[in-house]
Amino acid sequence: MFENIKKEFSTRTLVLIPIAIAINIAIGELVVRLKLPVYLDSIGTVLVGAIAGPWAGALTGGLANLIWGLFNPFAAPFFYVAAAIGLMAGLAGKRGAFQNETPRWVSVVVGAVFVFSLTLFILAFINASTDETGYTSYPSMGQLFSQYIVAFIAAILIGAAIGYFLLQKGGYAGMWGLITGVIAAIISAPTAAYVFGGVTGAGTDLLVAAFRASGGGILASVLAQGSVSDPFDKMLSFMVVWLIVRSLPARFTSR
């Protein structure tokens, strides 16, 4: 185990990490310049994970946010989230997620399952009721299905379309991105809620507001916002890295 970690940190990896952090920052700014509604500020981190391995990915993510924190202190407390993203990218890379192509039907299934679960989660959240004793009860799945059957069918169709047209042959990489996004949303929510009162100054704050308006507490609303925006952002990041890795010369990825 220890030997494996050591092997990940060759001189080449050490040189790669600052470049990856600079890529995070440069692409993050480019996205703002192109006015795209995503962050995509962890592409470099995912890239190191994919090329060098999980521990190198985690180190890249953690250091990226701590260094970024010297200029924008908002980033620093989330360093462990970025580290987790790098770690996940490394695990995905070890399983060949960035090198392999998958048939398109896999992408369709991944997209459909994800959007379906997201819809289920949001509807359960909106329809939760709190009684006088402060006990929150969630509606059963059966209730939700009968009430919102149209929404669920639409969700499956939209998800399938996203899978077919956006993920294309990178269904496996996209799936790892979605899972990473869910994990990032869950572990970043407590920090966002308790340290920053639930807002970040970014456009996604509107989503937090929407969930607060539907009766959620601060932590629950932040978690709900994260689960809506993070998986898509990380899915796109993983897809971009999948594209990059496949256009790299073979001598780069063979190590």
Binding site: F196, G197, G198, V199, T200, G201, A209
Partner: peptide
């Protein structure tokens, strides 16, 4: 951040 936090909260 301030604008966001004050409006939303």
């Amino acid at each position: 951040f301030a604008i966001s936090v004050i409006l939303i909260q």
